[in-house]
Amino acid sequence: MASPTTATPKLAALRSLINNAGIGLALLFLIVIFSFSSEYFLTANNITNILTQITINLILAVGMTFVILIGGIDLSVGSVMAFAAVVAGKAITLPGFGDTELILLACVAGLGVGMICGLLNGVISAYWGLPSFIITLGMLNIARGAGLQVSNAETIYAFPLAFEEFGSMLIGGVPVVFIVALVMTLIAWFVLNRTVFGRLLYGIGNNEEAVRLAGHPVFWYKVIAFSISGLAAGFAAIIYMARLNIASPIAGIGFELNAIAAVIIGGTSLAGGRGSVIGTLLGAFIIGVLANGLILMGLSDFLRQMITGVVIIVAVILDHYRAKYSAS
């Protein structure tokens, strides 16, 4: 029988670390290259910049991880983020309230809009068993249109000062918004690895029928996974507003693809059932560091885009081999 000494959670953490070692090395490799090619790369200011820049993508990607783990995909996060931002922007610019009330109201509105969009994605795709690719593509259009409708295509601005301050606050050079996103990532890690819910999400991604026959409400678990992704989009909207002090209905175009890229580079399988948010965190870092470092190197926009594409493909190829070796 099994060796009785295995301290399981520690072991699991260790294993997840080893699994992510490859991508960690890739990140390290990028950092080394950029450090040599630009004197500014490793400056405190630039590190602050990178952390700020990956925040929104990280939040969206962590939410996306839940959906991809169950074998789904959420193409609507960029649009939902814009819709949530516009609604929250309308809320936060309402006349006749105090700042605290307005900020609270905006948070509730943004998170609520995001979660409802995610909930709809989940209910529709799970109830009818439809591919989430199509349902969330529909939601991408619905949310974008709704955002434009609500805002009349106008950028909303003039937010309470306290809200703006939160968006640009630093603690020891680390942006508060990044710390918030990191805490969210750790909570997601905890949920996925230490709770029944997380365990069953992995199970659904691997073998949905086995989980259903074991008596678990697969439908609701899927709905919750999509709701989490929507909630993350709402959360990203709040962070977006705090950082830029505007709410634009055309924000977040194409953000879903960056989020998916972070998740996949982080080693989560598009087929579901395998992956981790720690990988997603590293994936978001790779994308952020790459964008930042290539600008610092003075590469043209077009080359930069090409290199980012190459890195995504190489990451997935490497992951393919990693999965193969860990399987045998």
Binding site: A2, N206, A210, L213, A214
Partner: peptide, 29 residues
Amino acid sequence: KDEGLILDMPIAANIALASMKDISRGGLL
């Protein structure tokens, strides 16, 4: 393979799959 097991998951997770209440407290494993 298609309906009984979650092949990629540990044996322990498979054995516990139908007994989640027994191996959790307040939703925590």
